[in-house]
């Protein structure tokens, strides 16, 4: 392996220029700007940094953002597994159209998704006008927040699980079934363990997306301070108040959480690939 690596490094041309261009552009667009964020947030010193990131509004926003994103990712975990299963194992008319539509939240601008959800789940919307009389406030509330985060996170679990399921031989379940397991047992004991890494990686991606979401959320959540204000919004509010260091400090917290989730996803995807290769 090491020999072939050396061979690859030697043989083809263009390593210097392409890597140089990559690093220069990455530095200009990502590294220097992100470094300026870190410097701004950390330059204020630990005491002020702590007071910026532990203010009541910020802390309330972490709680709301994290719990809503966890709930949305859980909903997407269950629904995404069902949808992926449906798309791979149960052919039904219009399957291709449904399959294409799964990516809509990826392709649709977040702000458009946000106003569309508000139109459906708001008090005068198709669903909202049915739900409000029942006492379900589906917009400008935690429910609205959950709906928005569920919408943007929807494709992740489906698209993580789908390829693994496509590669998985239905004979595994059938063998278990033939050996006397019930359908549910053969799914739970033979299939689910194989799908788990992909499921978790989709869950983590949906969670990360929910935590960082801004456009889809701000229209439907009502943005009530301490109640439905997400952390991204707290950053923009601090910025509007010219509290640059405070905005940077809260953004650093978000950046750290995003990086931790990214790390988790990479580890899980490694395991998922190992299963696929096995």
């Amino acid at each position: 392996m090491a020999m072939s690596n050396n061979a690859r490094a030697r043989i083809l041309p263009g390593f210097g220029p392409t890597l140089g261009l990559t690093l220069a552009w990455l530095g200009f667009v990502v590294l220097i700007p992100v470094a300026s964020l870190l410097l701004k947030g950390l330059a204020i010193g630990p005491a002020e940094f702590w007071s910026a990131v532990s203010g009541p509004r910020a802390v309330a926003s972490y709680r709301v953002t994290l719990s809503s994103a966890l709930a949305a990712a859980t909903v997407n975990g269950v629904a995404g597994l069902l949808v992926a299963w449906m798309l791979v194992r149960w052919p039904f008319p219009g399957r291709r159209i449904v399959d294409a539509l799964i990516d809509l939240p990826f392709a649709l601008p977040a702000a458009v998704g946000g106003i569309a959800l508000t139109a459906v789940f708001g008090p005068n919307g198709w669903i909202g006008s049915l739900a409000y009389p029942l006492g379900l406030r589906t917009a400008y509330s935690r429910i609205g927040l959950l709906l928005a985060m569920t919408f943007v996170g929807l494709p992740y679990v489906v698209r993580s699980v789908q390829p693994v399921l496509e590669d998985l031989d239905p004979e595994i379940e059938e063998a278990a079934f033939a050996l006397g397991a019930t359908r549910w047992q053969s799914f739970a004991h033979a299939v689910l363990p194989i799908l788990t890494p992909a499921l978790l990686s989709g869950f983590a991606l949906a969670l990360a997306r929910g935590i960082g979401e801004y456009g889809a959320v701000i229209f439907i959540s009502g943005n009530l301070p301490l109640e439905t204000e997400v952390t991204s919004l707290v950053v923009t509010i601090k910025l509007d108040q010219y509290d640059y260091a405070g905005a940077a400090a809260v953004a650093i917290v978000m950046l750290a959480v995003a990086l931790l989730l990214l790390l988790a996803v990479n580890l899980l995807q490694g395991r998922s690939r190992a299963y696929q290769a096995a």
Binding site: V30, K40, G212, E213, A258, L262
Partner: peptide
């Protein structure tokens, strides 16, 4: 090519995808 820091480079390229878009604006304001 194989070179040291390849995985890190990929992770850094992925960074804009995994952070809140608000941070993507904030870094340039700062």
């Amino acid at each position: 090519f194989e070179f040291r820091g390849r995985t890190l480079l990929l992770a850094l390229i992925d960074l804009p995808f995994s952070v809140s878009p608000v941070i993507g604006g904030l870094v340039f304001v700062l």
